[in-house]
Design a protein around this nucleic acid. Structure first.
Length: 715
RNA sequence: GGACUCGUAGCUCAGUUGGUUAGAGCGUCUCGUUUACACCGAGAAGGUCAGAGGUUCGACUCCUCUCGAGUCCACCA
């Protein structure tokens, strides 16, 4: 036991002290049992928000608790390059300097992007330290680092060699603003009030027999390649096999065109008129129907979200303008039968909220059917503990209906597709195979690398066993002993990325390592505003974590957030409500300091040295302390941090301070050893939640260790 | 259309496997400057635990239905 008392001036000094002493470092050579926690890498887009702070506070509390319990703890930090979002943020910044992708070119742009990355990284780094995150900094990983780069290559190459990766022109969800394909899971739906237009197509060979269809997108008429009716349509059945004319007058260079009338069971009786215009180039269902009927695929909306030459002379118009122009014409030529108000959901890009345009694009895909099956088996075998439990069902349900994964993105920020071309030759290689080889222009979906996060952070594939039983080459320089931390004991996430990220991690880990990626998967709730809306930059309803930290301190901010850490439950907060809780826990910190002042600074000269529980008050408080220890331990084991916090608060303030301490004043000398004992035990139990005050106070004890972090959890 | 979550004091939320007078914080009210603390202490008011029915010796807790709030998935011609 050392008796040097550190008199820390502020939280930063405490943090620096811990770091200097390497208390956060995991030790792969340790004989202790390991406990590993993986920090979900925040997106490289700017300051951490309140949700991050809550998530990371939860991780930190569990890490500190496990250290007290004698585990060799690894809390591994990292940041995600976040392709689309980073580019969007970066683009705004470039605009201010009157720069753009076009002006800079790929190389210059990447150079500046890496500089910007450093800028953001520093702010994330500062926030983490300020919050007291006890992460093992020397093992920090960025998803574009060499390690992950090797891992991503291994992943791509393996899939490619197994024939699970293919490339080709398919219909994809295209975001015209971000100018890239996105996948279904990145598409959201917004309810909008639009019009449903009823348009008649003349049946060829008749004078005035028409098929009426309903559409919300008249501007795509230019790309119609068939009319499909449901089988046995009473009115239109007789036209099957004939042709219809697109209702576009000579004004258009392309029309009117003659298109076949077909039958298809995917056309629904109840919707619209039971007849559907088929536009394989701009609708997923139409694409599928078109494929089965060998229909031509035309494209009237380009990747810039504007009309193509197919619509000439309505060329180069935005979708909305094109729609208005087409409607003018339809009215003029009498094809527009009627229009109705119509409420329906429109597909938008989850990142930029612009309307996505299904269109044909050359992209890379992964066949994930079998991977999903393996993952489902694992989930159904309950190998992973999900909190809340029902997420197991939600995830396996999604995996059961999984579609091929579009992994290419038309971006520059990310892992470039490791495929090289020379004439007709194709090679999969991380670096250029030689002169005259040109690399694929696209990069991989961010989740293609994030999905490997549990493995790439630990140096996979260097720890993977090859068929000869020896570890792979170790280019990335990772310590193979890190494999002991895999699978991870604990992972946490916001529920909104359960498919994009969590499901992928499970699929990829099971496939590549035959193991689950993590033993416990904790989904925290979302913090929302009082109307129940998500916090977002565009709504401007966010609450800055720094605001709370500056006003109430880190410990109080953490405590306030633990009260919202019930798995799967959203919390409604406002500045006022968080201020209230912040104030409450700031007061609690003050209470702790006052208790300490009374117990340690105003210690009577002739206090007893040893505990004696013969007095009934002493016996009672000791028993209550034991109950508290049991309760807090159980709550932490069950990952019910909010209950642990509540129990500690209640005991400290209302049992210990209000009752026991008051009574002890009458017999202070005798009670002194008990007062000290209880205070120390409380500090240890509170430390995972309030790391700074507890260390500050702990240092005031005469008999103590170098740091509270070296203490043991009360048994 | 399918799945799920929630509806507990004025507000934000807890409430472990069903068990005696349902809890916290803030807010409100009344006292109190006793030598750790007014960022405090003592005390009080405030809830038919959304509603109805059921299971049970006993339900906020389990089951069914209704109403209300919300999330996710699928689809929207």
């Amino acid at each position: 036991m050392k008796t040097i008392k550190n008199n820390f001036k502020n939280e930063k000094e405490i943090y620096d002290f811990w770091e200097k002493k390497k208390y956060f470092s995991a030790d792969p050579t340790s004989s202790k049992k390991s406990f590993s926690l993986l920090i979900p890498p925040p997106n490289l887009t700017g300051e951490l928000h309140l949700g991050h702070v809550m998530q990371h506070s939860i991780l930190d509390a569990i890490a500190r608790f496990k250290r007290f319990q004698g585990f060799d703890v690894l809390l591994l930090p990292g940041v995600d390059h976040a392709g689309i979002q980073f580019e969007a943020t970066f683009e705004k910044k470039l605009q201010k300097d009157d720069l753009s992708k076009q002006k800079l070119g790929r190389e210059k742009w990447l150079e500046k992007a890496w500089e910007f990355k450093e800028e953001i990284y520093k702010s994330v780094w500062r926030s983490w330290r300020m919050m007291g995150l006890s992460a093992d900094w020397k093992r920090e990983v960025f998803t574009l680092d060499d390690g992950p780069r090797q891992a991503v290559f291994e992943e791509f190459k393996t899939f490619y060699d197994k024939g699970l990766i293919y490339k080709g022109p398919y219909i994809v969800q295209w975001c015209p603003k971000d100018r890239t394909a996105i996948e279904n899971a990145e598409v959201e739906y917004e309810e909008r009030k639009e019009k449903l237009y009823f348009v008649k197509y003349l049946v060829e060979g008749t004078k005035n027999e028409y098929i009426e269809i309903a559409t919300t997108r008249p501007e795509t008429i230019f790309a119609d390649t068939a009319i499909a009716i449901y089988p046995g349509h009473p009115k239109y059945k007789k036209y099957v096999g004939k042709k219809a004319l697109t209702p576009i007058s000579i004004l258009s260079l392309s029309g009117p065109r003659s298109i076949p009338i077909i039958e298809d069971s995917r056309v629904e009786k109840e919707l619209g008129t039971g007849a559907l215009k088929i536009t394989p180039g701009h609708d997923l269902l139409d694409y599928a129907i078109g494929k089965d009927h060998d229909l031509e695929v035309l494209q009237v909306i380009g990747k810039d979200g504007k009309t193509t030459m197919l619509a000439a002379p309505l060329f180069d118009l935005k979708v909305d303008e094109a729609r208005q122009q087409v409607l003018l014409e339809l009215r003029k030529n009498g094809s527009l039968v009627k229009e109705e108000d119509y409420k329906h959901s429109v597909a938008v890009c989850e990142r930029c909220r612009s309307v996505v345009e299904p269109l044909i694009s050359e992209e890379w895909f992964v066949k994930v059917g079998n991977l999903a099956k393996e993952a489902i088996k694992t989930i159904k075998a309950n190998e992973i503990r999900f909190l809340p439990k029902n997420y197991a069902k939600i995830l396996s349900g999604w995996l059961e209906n999984i579609h091929d994964w579009c992994i290419s993105r038309s971006l520059w920020w990310g892992h470039r597709i490791p495929v090289w071309y020379r004439g007709d030759e194709i090679k999969v290689s991380l670096d250029s195979p030689g002169e005259d080889w040109v690399q694929d222009e696209q990069v991989l979906d961010t989740w293609f690398s994030s999905g490997l996060w549990p493995m790439s952070t630990l140096g996979w594939p260097s720890f993977a066993k090859a068929s000869d039983g020896k570890p792979h080459d170790q280019k990335a320089g990772f310590d193979p002993e890190l494999v002991k931390y895999y699978p991870w004991d604990f992972e946490i996430s916001a529920p909104e990325i359960k498919f994009l990220w969590i499901a992928r991690m499970i699929m990829l880990s099971v496939h590549f390592t035959d193991q689950i990626p993590f033993k416990t998967m904790f989904f925290h709730g979302m913090l929302r505003d009082l109307e129940g809306r998500k916090f977002s930059k565009s709504l401007g309803n966010g609450i800055e974590p720094m605001y709370l930290i500056e006003k109430w301190g880190v410990d109080a901010t953490r405590m306030a957030l633990y009260t919202y850490s019930v798995p799967g439950r959203d919390g409604r907060v406002s500045k006022a409500i968080l201020d209230e809780r912040g104030k409450n826990y700031r007061n609690f910190g003050t209470k702790l300091r006052n208790v300490t002042k009374f117990i340690l600074e105003l210690k009577p000269a002739n206090s007893k040295q040893t505990k004696n529980l013969s007095h009934e008050e002493d016996a009672l408080i000791e028993k209550e302390l034991q109950d508290l220890i049991k309760a807090v331990t159980k709550h932490l084991d069950n990952l019910e941090l909010h209950l642990a916090v509540e129990a500690l608060y209640e005991f400290t303030w209302h049992k210990f301070a209000d009752i026991y301490i008051e009574k002890s004043k009458a017999r202070r000398e005798e009670a002194q050893p008990i007062l000290e004992h209880i205070l120390k035990q409380l500090l240890i139990m509170l430390h995972p939640f309030m790391p700074f005050v507890t260390e500050e106070i702990y240092q005031k004890f005469d008999v103590k260790k170098e740091s509270i972090m070296l203490e043991e959890w009360p048994a």
